[in-house]
Design a protein around this nucleic acid. Structure first.
Lengths: 228, 228
DNA sequence: GGCAAAAATGGACGATTGTCCATTTTTGCC
DNA sequence: GGCAAAAATGGACAATCGTCCATTTTTGCC
């Protein structure tokens, strides 16, 4: 649903800080510059000077809008995470009915040009790795897996229930863990070799794996219509 | 190989790399301290002061042994990578003959307590993410996938050749990419939730996936003896 | 024990970090 | 147009960064 858009006097925002810096445009400029810098030169080298240089703004803006660099990083991670989940929801809405089609939609979303590109993969990976240094980033790094996992798990549970599995919850958990791991690993693969990465091959591999375990629901090309 | 003494009168002392760093003990102490620091507080916060504090040595030692922080990071990455591959080789030697047993050995090695623990996962992930900031670390981050991938690919090619697959090389590539991705993803899973991670479940998931595609070679518990 | 080389020390150094604030510029309402 | 509030500026500041070197301590051979 609609989070962080306008709502001009959103007073209750965040914790109990009294003063609310409003100007939205340069706030977003700072977030964009931060994400660009992280993607391009990494979180380590993303300094305040680097950010304001990319944003074309002055030094004090970060403190004015975010009361420090750390909050800016959190805001950037939140923005990135939110964008990711909006995309997921978008693809889910367009999916045909049936659990196997929701699973297919999520997989194809995560491998599409808009869902899997160098900027996204780099920033995601950087945030993930910075969890130790900046614990407040953890929830946003974790959300990707958590939310994606939930969608997968529900869909798999439907399937295993249909199949009459004795413990559909456990089977769904295992399938989800394996599938999320494979998707995560493909992202790392893309991160390390963006030029050699083949989206079609990646999708084929994922669906071949699913077809091996759930042949009535998945084929090599994706989800199958013929679910009893 | 082992030249750690003599070269006594290499007095040129210019900025060329003529002088050989001799004292091995404190050199290793620095590497260990660096890896510990990276695992514990992350690469971002691993400063020279932090390293020498953990090592119990003095400030100048880094410059004496490594001519700078960057070379120390490279040496630490190289040491970590080397240790990983020695462990892989060890497990490969002990594997029963047959490609499916080599694959099983690699998987179990990568999921064992000695192959998958918080220190290893954290440092590996940190180095992987630092590739953008420190390009000289790239080869050592890449080696893990490359070497593991080679082992898998050869074994799978044997299997697919035995099965009379029309294009055993391509099939082996796909299987390898999927399996490496899944292993990589399980590492990330462990990284984010070391307490909740279940090694037995992880192994079961991997073998269930393999069993789905290669049922004559793998069962839910691991590799099968019955490969005609 | 003497003594030169090696190993190790720890402070100086300039550069850069993130924070903060006194100012200036822009905005928006009368 | 005037003028107060908001937005934006850019430099001061202490702290920390990594590098480097003059010095001291330890080592090893005669």
């Amino acid at each position: 649903m609609g989070e962080l858009n306008d709502a001009k006097s959103d007073r209750t925002d965040g914790e109990g800080e009294g003063d609310l810096p409003p100007r939205q445009a340069s706030r977003q400029t700072l977030i964009d510059a931060t994400l660009d810098s992280i993607a391009e030169i990494g979180l380590i080298r993303t300094s305040v000077s680097e950010i304001i240089s990319r944003a074309g703004l002055s030094r004090g803006m970060i403190h004015l809008h975010f009361q420090g660099k750390e909050n800016l990083l959190v805001a950037a991670a939140a923005f990135s995470s939110d964008r990711y989940h909006k995309r997921l929801g978008h693809h889910l809405e367009r999916a045909k009915p049936g659990p196997q089609f929701r699973i297919e939609a999520l997989i194809l979303c995560d491998l599409s040009e808009e869902g899997l590109n160098e900027n996204i993969v780099r920033t995601t990976h950087e945030f993930q790795g910075a969890t130790r240094a900046f614990p407040m980033l953890a929830p946003y790094s974790d959300t990707r897996d958590t939310r994606l996992r939930t969608y997968f798990e529900q869909a798999f549970e439907e399937i295993f229930t249909q199949l009459g599995e004795t413990d559909p919850k456990l089977a769904a958990q295992d399938m989800t863990t394996g599938l999320v791991a494979m998707m995560e690993g493909l992202w790392v693969d893309y991160l390390l070799h963006p030029k050699d990465f083949d989206r079609a091959q990646a999708a084929r591999i994922v669906f071949r794996t699913l077809a091996g375990i759930l042949p009535r629901y998945f084929g090599l090309a994706g989800a199958l219509e013929t679910a009893s």
